[in-house]
Simulated assay, not measured.
Amino acid sequence: MFTEGQLYSPVTEHEDGTVEVHLADTHPGRDDAHYLRRRGEIAGAALGWDRGHEPVPTIDYTDAEHDIWRRVSAELAPLHERHAHREYLEAKARLDLPADHVPQLAEVSERLVPITDWSYVCAPGLVPLRDFYADLGARTFNSTQYLRHGSEPLYTPEPDIIHEVIGHANQLASPRLAAITEAAGRASLRLRTDEAMKLVADVFWFSIEFGVMHDGSDLKAYGAGILSSYGEIQEFGQMEIRELDLADMGTLNYDITAYQPVLFAARSIDHLEDVVGDFFATVDDEAAAALRHEAVRRGPLPMSAATG
């Protein structure tokens, strides 16, 4: 079950104005004082931003941070060509993000707005679940601005700007995937119960974040979490692949710290729109409760029963 706050390191703003990011003990930057200070600076820029009255803060990225972006962009490019669904690849070509430097969020918005009318705003880390989804409903994506630790440029235990932009912005340059994402955001405005909100977030996790889709006889990825991960993009085809099933997607327990062992495959982009898109467009508290009851009635699905 999705729990907000698991994905992002907590941030504390101290009375003297300094900002501290609390990395997990297993984080590769946990004992790097320079990295911790840099993370605090970048989080502080987001915390001090006067939204609605100021431009999104510009981050003066270092040469080392640009190098991380260049390295990851270069490593992901051939993997995308092999493993990404053509819906994502066409959107990626349309957006044409820079591969030689970390783009400012304003630059991402400038490229994205003419395509699908989506824009990016900054966040220090965690955004409350309902606020995050409400912004999605307004075609606004909350993004972190920091980069992963330089000792492990192909790995991050938390969503950094590489995940938020290479994963999601490319995805949002597809009008069809952008519409599904917007529908998820609009759904949150109809939902009164936390249980219904969590179910929508879990369906979102298994589609927009970790979705796979058939392209002819091939299984391809379109989920931002897969397509921004150097490791996961090479492993997803070995996982247990199930048909789209909203009750299963909305209630399946999962561990965000490991590769996802169960993925849900759409037969096509049309199928994804018909099942997931229509669900986000119509779900209310009663429909969410019915899906939960259906999952309970069925009982746990054996991990090998739905392998495709």
Rank of each mutant, 00 (worst) to 15 (best):
R186T: 14
A187D: 12
S188M: 15
S188H: 14
L189K: 13
R190N: 09
R190F: 10
L191T: 04
L191S: 03
L191D: 04
R192Y: 09
T193D: 05
T193K: 04
T193H: 05
D194G: 11
D194Q: 11
D194K: 10
D194P: 05
E195A: 14
E195N: 14
E195P: 12
A196Y: 06
A196S: 14
A196P: 02
A196E: 07
A196G: 11
A196D: 05
A196I: 07
M197Y: 15
M197S: 11
M197T: 10
K198C: 10
K198A: 11
K198D: 15
K198Y: 13
K198I: 14
K198Q: 14
L199Y: 03
L199M: 04
L199P: 04
V200Q: 02
V200M: 00
D202A: 10
V203M: 00
F204R: 09
F204M: 13
W205K: 07
W205Y: 11
W205P: 12
F206I: 14
I208N: 06
I208L: 14
I208M: 07
E209L: 10
E209T: 01
F210P: 04
V212M: 08
V212K: 02
M213L: 14
M213Q: 14
M213S: 11
M213H: 12
H214I: 09
H214V: 10
H214L: 15
D215Q: 12
D215F: 08
G216K: 14
G216A: 13
G216M: 10
S217F: 14
S217I: 09
D218R: 15
D218P: 08
D218W: 09
D218E: 11
D218V: 08
L219T: 04
L219A: 12
K220C: 05
K220L: 06
K220S: 04
K220Q: 07
K220T: 06
A221N: 05
A221M: 01
Y222M: 07
Y222F: 13
Y222D: 05
G223T: 04
A224G: 01
G225K: 00
G225M: 03
G225W: 01
G225V: 03
I226P: 03
I226D: 04
I226L: 09
I226M: 02
L227M: 12
S228L: 03
S228Q: 06
S229K: 01
Y230L: 15
Y230C: 11
Y230H: 13
G231T: 08
G231M: 02
G231C: 08
